[in-house]
Amino acid sequence: MPFWCEIDSMKNAGKWRRFPTGDLARVAVFAALIAVLGLPGSVNVFGNLVPITLQTLGVMLAGVILGAWRGALAVAVLLVLVAAGLPLLAGGRGGLGAFIGPSAGFLIGWLPGAAVTGWLTERAGRSPSLLQLVVACLVGGIGVIYLFGIPVQALVTGASLPAAAALSAAFLPGDVIKAVLASVVARGVQRAYPDAVPAVHRERLRSGWGR
C-alpha cells in the first residue's frame, strides 16, 4: 500500500467507510434499472396473475454486478419507492396493494434472491465463468424467489402448496430463459467493464483508489 493511502486510512480511521459514495450511486442506478426494465410492459399469462416481466432480469443483474448486500439494497430501495406509491413495477403498478396481492411473496423474494445471486457471484472470484453466473442466477433468481413466492401465493389463495407450485411452474421456462439471459448479459458487461465484477470492485475499494 502506498504511503498516501496509509495516511488516508489513518485520517479516516474513525469514520464509516463501509458505504462509499460510489456504491451509493451504483445502488440507486440499479434500483432505477430494475424499474426501467419493467417499462416495455408485462405479459400476463392467463390464470396465474403474476405478471411476467424483465424486472426479475434486473434483480439478477443487480446481484451479479453489485454483489450480495448492495444488490439486495438496490432491490430494497425499489420496493420502498413502490410501497410509497410510485408506479415502478411492470405495467405501471405500484402502491401498497402490490405487497398484499397474490404476487407479494415473489416481490419480497427479490430481496434474498438478489442477495443469494450476489453471494454466489462473489464466491466465483475475479472472473466468473458463464456457468458460474448461470448457477448463481438459477439458484438466487429462481430458487430463492420461488421459495418465498409459492408459500405466500398458497397462503393468499388458500390453495395447497403443491397446487400453488404447479401454477408457478408455468413461469419456470420463461424464468430459466431469463436467468440464462441475465448471465450472458452480465458476462458481456463484465468483459466490457471489469469493475462490474463484485470481487474486482471490492479489491479496488480496498486498495483505496477512487473510493
Binding site: 451504483r26 442506478v29 454486478i65
Partner: peptide
C-alpha cells in the same frame, strides 16, 4: 447496463 454503470460511477465521482 454498461451505460447505466458508467452513469453510476460518474455520478458517484
Amino acid at each position: 447496463v454498461v451505460g447505466a454503470l458508467r452513469h453510476a460511477d460518474a455520478l458517484g465521482e
